[in-house]
């Protein structure tokens, strides 16, 4: 009796273990394949990784010299700065727009192209567990050393940030994060204390703000809670998009007729990929501002314009109990 019970548990646990193996158990071959892919794209991506301003990094993404970098590296739009090519040659450049919320910035090289460049990753192509690699000039540009490589994995990807275990240093800021095919999927932004606490501005943020960034716009950040506008709904990120999970009483959402299970598609034309997107798109407005919300209910897409209310005052205790 007891013996068969133990046997049952053993079989059961082995079955679970088999499932894990099926889900991609790491292997030396996996590492070697990654190495082969990284090394095959390395010469090209190294050519396009440049020093930006005083002590930052950037990556050229077009033949005519458009550079992606971090907003905190490019700084104010319209500044004149200097960039350093991998061979040490200095090139004048002008800062374009910045998007502080995601730490995304653009710079335009001046002078004759064509410039060596790296291709961009497509929208919504980054997933947790993907191999990736980062380049940058930690501690500043050093011609003898060149750009420094870090190979790692995506820990998670959100609309406003990608976290990886590619270990970054000061000076890596603005440098590119690539997928295994050598496409730019992020821009090095900031680190925390643990070695796997490395954050990158996601390429999706650039894609979505491409035109305003190119036009040199300084995109707004979310406002202080005291003046921030609010719709009055709670949302969660699901597979189908950003879903309304609660409509709070006495809010503009009630009057506007927003219902639980509505999927928020866009706010003022800015497409909403996850709850971080939603929080920014609403939170950058002051209370009283009018916003246009596109949403999906069942099969049909509708649009409404709503005047935002005031954000509720923060409760005394928030967060999850556990």
């Amino acid at each position: 009796m007891s013996r068969s019970f133990v046997r049952l548990i053993l079989v059961g646990s082995l079955w679970v273990h088999a499932l894990v193996c099926g889900a991609g158990e790491p292997s030396v071959e996996d590492f070697l394949e990654t190495q082969q892919k990284v090394q095959s794209v390395l010469p090209q991506v190294l050519d396009s990784t440049i020093g930006v301003g005083s002590g930052g990094t950037g990556v050229i993404v077009s033949e005519n010299g458009l550079v992606l970098t971090a907003a905190h590296v490019s700084g104010e739009p319209g500044r004149r700065i200097s960039c350093v090519m991998p061979d040490g040659k200095r090139v004048r450049a002008r800062t374009l727009g910045r998007f502080d919320h995601a730490d995304a910035g653009m710079v335009q090289l001046e002078g004759e192209g064509p410039w060596p460049f790296s291709p961009l990753g497509s929208r919504k192509s980054v997933n947790a567990g993907d191999w990736c690699f980062a380049l940058g000039h930690p501690g500043g540009f050093d011609k003898d050393r060149g750009a420094v490589l870090r190979v790692g994995k995506v820990i998670y990807a959100r609309s406003d940030t990608i976290r990886t275990d590619c270990e970054l240093l000061r000076g890596d800021s603005g440098g590119p994060l690539f997928n295994i095919n050598g496409e730019v999927i992020g821009i090095n932004s900031r680190i925390g204390d643990p070695l796997d606490d490395n954050y990158h501005a996601p390429i999706d943020a650039f894609h979505k703000m491409w035109d305003p960034l190119l036009a040199g716009e300084d995109l707004p950040n979310t406002r202080d809670r005291s003046e921030r506008g609010d719709l009055g709904v709670d949302v969660e990120t699901h597979d189908q998009g950003v879903v309304v999970t609660r409509v709070r009483e006495n809010t503009v959402a009630v009057d506007a007729g927003i219902l639980v299970d509505d999927v928020i598609l866009s706010v003022d034309g800015y497409s909403i990929d996850d709850s971080a997107d939603y929080r920014w798109a609403i939170g950058k407005n002051i209370a009283g501002a009018s916003v246009k919300i596109q949403y999906l209910r069942g099969e049909s897409t509708s649009e409404l314009t709503v005047e935002l209310g005031k954000a509720p005052r923060r409760g005394r205790w928030r967060g999850r109990g556990f």
């Binding site: 889900a23 790491p26 947790a128 567990g129 190979v151 998670y156 275990d165």
Partner: peptide
């Protein structure tokens, strides 16, 4: 903590 399920890569599955 499998990546595909939760969108979060468990500590044990990171490079080191």
């Amino acid at each position: 903590g499998n990546a595909a399920d939760t969108g979060y890569l468990d500590r044990s599955e990171r490079v080191n």
